[in-house]
């Protein structure tokens, strides 16, 4: 099952890369080569692809994925404008430090995606993920240290959606 899903994914990538929709008709030769290559890829790497393939057949997860794309690009825009402002400001308003936040996600894959997404949140980069699901995040601007989790809002926003997509 998971081999078939991975083969479909690699076929999509192949079609984007080769683009068989030429002006003089459909280029079936390169498409056929793509099918052979993607079957090969599916057989070779299907075992390391995903743990629970039945999740690919739940349309609700795709809806949340579209929602996730919008949130992601909003955060990405916010982060890049925020950092451009900090870099170009004459006084360099940064207040850096490494904070520690616990995540509620359980799946390893979801935690990996979360750690990568934090790279695009405003002024944050994951330094380390510990064994017991703690994330160590380097923040460029910490507002107050006294509170328990000064930067938790950064990960909560992604976490709520990733939980619905992957778990």
């Amino acid at each position: 099952m998971r081999k078939i899903i991975l083969a479909l994914f690699s076929l999509i990538v192949w079609v984007l890369l080769v683009w068989p929709f030429t002006p003089w008709g459909f280029d079936y030769q390169s498409f056929l080569v793509g099918i052979i290559v993607s079957i090969f890829v599916g057989i070779l790497f299907g075992d390391v692809f995903t743990e629970s393939p039945h999740k690919f057949f739940e349309p609700k997860r795709y809806m949340w994925f579209i929602c996730f794309v919008f949130v992601f690009f909003w955060e990405f825009l916010h982060a890049s404008f925020d950092f451009a402002y900090r870099v170009l400001h004459p006084e360099l308003p940064i207040n850096p430090g490494i904070i520690k936040v616990k995540t509620n996600l359980k799946k390893e894959f979801a935690i990996g995606i979360l750690a990568n997404c934090i790279g695009f949140a405003p002024g944050a980069v994951t330094v380390e993920v510990s064994e017991d699901n703690y994330l160590y995040i380097h923040m460029a601007f910490i507002r107050h240290i006294g509170a328990e989790e000064p930067g938790a809002y950064v990960i909560r926003r992604f976490e709520r959606i990733l939980k619905r997509i992957f778990e």
Binding site: N95, P96, G97, I98, I99, K100, V127, E128, Y136, I142, I145
Partner: peptide
């Protein structure tokens, strides 16, 4: 880290 960093939990 930078010497003016405020906190280092790691």
């Amino acid at each position: 880290l930078w010497k003016k960093s405020v906190v280092d939990k790691f």
